[in-house]
Design a protein around this nucleic acid. Structure first.
Lengths: 193, 193
DNA sequence: TTCATTTATTGAACTTGTTCAATGTTTTCT
DNA sequence: AGAAAACATTGAACAAGTTCAATAAATGAA
């Protein structure tokens, strides 16, 4: 059951007694999001933090020229939110869209704030989760600074094969920071090897 | 005095009573780092988290081709560490070097872990600080995906003029992800405007 | 102050990646 | 199943950024 997946995910990061674990995970409500539907649209205030239990989401932004740039993809066992908009309740610069029929467990801002007070270990949980997210984004930043598109593509498909398999060229290209035409050329080069 | 700067920085993010604020800030010890000296070298285990009180540091990594890539610069009122190496006490992939005569207040891993236990608000403090760091790295990631080197350069010098002024072209170029020759060409173009 | 070292500038040739357009393929909808 | 829409591929012309090399300027150490 999907609540179990959430509980497992939590206890990977922090020790919680059974009662706290129940209280915390019961604060989440399930939501089904059909392919192409949005969980959050750029400009809205992000009302939730979510834990993906099925499917796949893309978290992206539209730049001033109308181009989309993917900040990350999230499959089962990943978290999704616009952390800035959610914590400060200001307008989001990100959109979150399901790229296939998906499900997530969501928690509201009020409930989360309350649980921070009520269960001190939740503070620790999100401190640790945020640190891990930061570390992996630092790694991605460095790889974007140091590697060529070819390398970044190969990196991605070996590191996240389960995600890669769900993506169109367009979606992957806008994560890698290249045009989809160029990704297509990279592919035809590397497939032949 | 530099401890006051630290206290101010903390209370920007979280409410602490006077005694907790004293206890926490007294866990830090001052260190002077001369220009070009390293606070951390790639491959070592990061023993400290630091708060910069004077000067400027560059946090960077060497890639497989021996090229340096700057993850960030830190001046007065900024924090420095290899968060991965510090929290997990594993080998660092980052180096931290003073680019001018500098000073920082440092805390050890043991002391910090102990204070997490002793003062629950410290957990909240670092949860919030890490979130802010993550948000600004997300923004930088997006701007690296969507903007041209020209734009990134202009962005940086308007957003961080105090830092920009301390940097050589080489240092700034390796933050922007371009060659220093190309930065030089960007400069000669934009100066004339 | 001088000499050595590091840093900055510039140009030419090159590589990586973009854009646009045409065509083919796959998916989706009814 | 058939039509429309979305997606993928390819090539040609172009733009952005790199590399290498030569030279100038700034900085640092004795």
């Amino acid at each position: 059951m999907s609540l179990d997946l959430l509980k497992q995910n939590i206890t990977k990061n922090v020790q919680l007694n059974d009662s706290d674990l129940e209280t915390f995970s019961n604060a989440f409500y399930p939501k089904t999001i059909a392919k192409k539907q949005f969980l959050l649209k750029q400009g809205e205030i992000c009302k939730f933090e979510g834990f993906v239990t099925k499917g796949c989401f893309r978290v992206f932004t539209l730049d001033s020229q109308g181009k989309e740039h993917v900040l990350y993809f999230a499959i089962k066992d990943w978290w999704i939110t616009d952390i800035d908009s959610f914590t400060n309740q200001n307008k989001s610069i990100l959109s979150i869209q399901a790229i296939e029929d998906s499900e997530a467990l969501l928690i509201t801002h009020e409930n989360k704030e309350q649980l921070y007070q009520q269960i001190p270990s939740i503070e620790k949980l999100f401190r640790i989760m945020t640190q891990k997210t930061l570390v992996s984004l630092q790694r991605r930043m460095i790889s974007n600074l140091s590697q060529t598109a070819d390398d970044r593509y190969l990196n991605f498909i070996t590191k996240y094969p389960q995600i890669a398999q769900k993506l169109t060229n367009l979606q992957l290209a806008s994560y890698l920071g290249i045009s989809h035409e160029f990704l297509s050329k990279i592919r035809s080069k590397t497939v032949s090897k």
